[in-house]
Design a protein around this nucleic acid. Structure first.
Lengths: 336, 336
DNA sequence: TTGAAAGCGCTAACAC
DNA sequence: GTGTTAGCGCTTTCAA
């Protein structure tokens, strides 16, 4: 840039320090000088240089968000929560799309190390808890959405997967279903694991024996759900309901059923998780589970900014938010 | 941060300048010293401070992308194109969600002025062409996706709205439709205007008189499409096809039709624009127009980075990419 | 091929 | 309430 703080200073007939004070809203400046300075800034069209400011103040007033896929509403809703909270507190947000690659995640994490960002919000990260703890141990600000990391400096916001999963399956059981398939996401995922746990818990609650042949993995995507169903058909297993660890896989289930003329919900009840926008538009509308995504982003960000500003790590660190089971047309009581 | 370039320098027994040379891959460093330095960097876990680097080098190696809504696949697909191209050239990307607010757009544009970013990609911006030209005139790097701005320093990538729109309407006409509704997006939008133009052109091509009562505005969103249809019904106008300036509005059309038991496509053919993911999943599947979004983002970014690096503004500045009309189940020949 | 030294534009400590 | 001054951590002439 061309024009800098000294230019403003001399134009206003004050020192650079005074201009800086005006800029940073220090209160020990007379209204008169403040006005003079503001005018000079206006007339010259001055914009403070962020790099210089960051270097001197040792902070960037920016936080990063690392998500696996900005094409998915699950992430973008959370990001919107982050963004709005950050914006309200004068923080910039750097959104990073890791495209589901561990390496890209690590790459983006370097923005922390090189001080481009003051803190980072990780949404369901791929890298391990240990790696994240190490980063926090080095003094960097990290927050997590979607899982619980046991580290006193890492704020976490997540929903109780086990609980809602149990609710989903109990709902099916109460509607007469006993042969319930569970299609899981990829194995390393805590989400997937916990949703399975809820499924098992519900079966146990109602003393329904667990049938391992009703368990399939669908890798959290549509194709995976489709293939999982094909494997189930091939097994000739009997079942009347399918619970998918996310909506994407449920879409695959729909497709597999359509191909075999299996009617949903008459022949088969289906429930997903995520409240993907498509779930409301597909026929039949898909029952699912909704997480308060926006709120999750906002809560975590507020907490992180707090922590970055006073670095006292008092009060609450872990936030568990409630999810809501949404029953739509894709399931019905058995035998009705 | 704690450890800095001098620390690495003394550990490696060289000067800071040499460390800097290694870091920036200058070629005038012996392999031996380079190795020494690399080792020191490794052992100390050194990360260059971005702010200092930016200040000194007067560039941030970051570009911004300003989009209206990161919840919409139209924008995120483009952003992915931008991101990947930028990443390949060692540029960081700051994604900004203006949430459809002009002020937030301007706010984010300040990242250019304060040198947080070296350039900005605007996707279908809300602010005026003049405002954008002014920014470019001041020497900032700006690129646009989705419209053509007549300024020699502003690279533009867009699709020919008039052309595909004309194709869509000609398709309907060739299938026997003559009474074709056009539901437009908000008035200020060039996209909306040009799509209307294509619609009119097709009618003129086939000498079908334009009936103003078949023109409605739906503000580019589902509700708008719904309301537009209700107004059309209220008018008691006769029509056999509806062309919506985007898929969102087509969703509203579906809803309005469902309420009145109007069957798509038997009673009414519907076509949208955007190839929204939902269009493939809704029943009947929605005919639409696909833009090569990812490519558009990538092309523009490549061009911008080029321009930022040699600031020679030779060769091509304007890129028009082709869109593809996708016919699905939501339309059929009239009277069949 | 390497080092010394200046300086990018700002803020904060200290002096007045 | 305002000014002076040092220095944030790096790159980049210039000289050796």
């Amino acid at each position: 840039m061309d024009i800098k703080i000294v230019d403003v200073a001399s134009k206003a007939g004050v020192s650079p320090a005074t201009v800086s004070r005006v800029l940073n809203k220090a209160n020990n400046v007379t209204l008169k000088t403040r006005t003079k300075v503001m005018e000079a800034i206006q007339e010259l069209g001055y914009h403070p240089n962020a790099a210089a400011k960051n270097l001197r103040s040792q902070r960037s007033m920016a936080i990063g968000v690392i998500a696996q896929d900005i094409n998915s509403a699950y992430f973008t809703e959370i990001i919107k929560g982050v963004e709005n909270m950050a914006y309200a507190q004068k923080y910039k947000v750097i959104i990073c799309d890791s495209e589901n690659q561990r390496d890209k995640e690590r790459e983006y994490l370097n923005l922390l190390m090189d001080r481009t960002i003051d803190g980072v919000v990780l949404i369901a990260p791929l890298i391990s808890d240990e790696e994240i703890c190490q980063i926090a141990d080095k003094g960097y600000s990290v927050g997590i959405i979607g899982r619980n990391i046991n580290h006193e400096k890492i704020p976490c916001v997540f929903t109780d997967n086990v609980k809602f999963s149990q609710q989903v399956v109990l709902y099916l059981i109460e509607n007469g279903h006993r042969d319930i398939v569970f299609i899981s996401g990829y194995a390393e995922s805590t989400d997937s694991y916990e949703r399975l746990e809820g499924y098992l818990k519900a079966l146990r609650d109602r003393q329904i024996p667990f049938r391992p042949e009703l368990l399939e993995n669908g890798d959290f995507n549509e194709d995976g759900g489709y293939e999982a169903m094909k494997r189930l058909f091939a097994k000739n297993a009997h079942f009347t309901a399918v619970y998918c660890a996310n909506d994407e896989m449920a879409l695959g289930v729909y497709k597999a059923c359509a191909e075999r003329n299996i009617r949903i919900p008459e022949d088969l009840s289906v429930i997903g998780v995520d409240n993907n926008r498509i779930s409301k538009y597909i026929t039949p509308t898909l029952s699912t589970v909704n997480q308060p995504k926006y709120t999750m982003g906002a809560i975590l960000t507020e907490k992180m900014i707090d922590q970055m500003n006073d670095d006292v790590h008092h009060d609450k660190r872990v936030f568990v938010v409630d999810s809501e089971v949404i029953i739509r047309d894709s399931c019905k009581p058995l035998g009705e």
